[in-house]
Amino acid sequence: MTATPASDSGSGSATAGSGSASRSGASATPAIELRGLHKSFGSNHVLKGIDLSVQPRQVMCLIGASGSGKSTLLRCVNRLEEPTSGAVLIDGIDITHPDCDLDLVRRDIGMVFQQFNLFPHLSAIGNVTLAQRKVLGRSDDESRTVAIEMLERVGLSDKADSYPSQLSGGQQQRVAIARALAMNPKMMLFDEATSALDPELVGDVLDVMRQLASEGMTMLVVTHEMGFARRVADHVVFMDQGVVCEQGPPDAVLGSPSTPRLQQFLEKVLEH
């Protein structure tokens, strides 16, 4: 029942949505596109018709108060959360279509969680090699080589054999980023990646994310770090009560907010 409107808009994507965009013209097709996305949990209407598109190599930050629906939106992008209605297009293909193989979709979409969600029974390198071997079918040697490269990239090559419980929150989160990157994702989702960290550990994680952005990774980032949004994002989206309230370049959105809601939000966030 939820998939019917989604599949309709999916099959008509070339005509209805981005107009002239065709699948061959990758630069014109958004990496992520949400069309009329709704999500309800029972009677709680969390997302009320979201339309958004993230271009390839773009860094989009989602900001807003807790409960505004930003995390739910992010989780709909790889369908960890099932949209109630609407379409989610990844590289122009509607992934809410019932025929869609989600496991294949998710290989290409790296995700980083607030609570890290490292596998506690595996070492850092075990975490980074597991899905490479089991999902991509890489050999032990190859997955190890990639894992070491990724751990170096996040500055943790010396922690390869440590278990998550032996690592600080910031280190765990960077291993989680390495784990996602090892799958060679086309895009990355960050769900409040620094919210569970002690303040002094936030910087290390943000540095890795900034580095990733400068390398041209397509990123959709739910964050409370306004400094990061201002300096790193290409596009900032302010969500409020399940709708996109205001969006645009960071300087415009954060510098001169036009809606009273965003003004209030920014005052509260920047007060302290």
Partner: peptide, 27 residues
């Protein structure tokens, strides 16, 4: 086993069976 473990595994492209076998059951 925390739900986040399943979500992390699925977000990496593991199937439901793989998630159960190599992430959930060992824990």
């Amino acid at each position: 086993v925390p739900k986040g473990q399943v979500e992390a595994a699925r977000s990496l492209g593991m199937t439901q069976g793989q998630t159960l076998r190599i992430v959930v059951i060992p824990q």
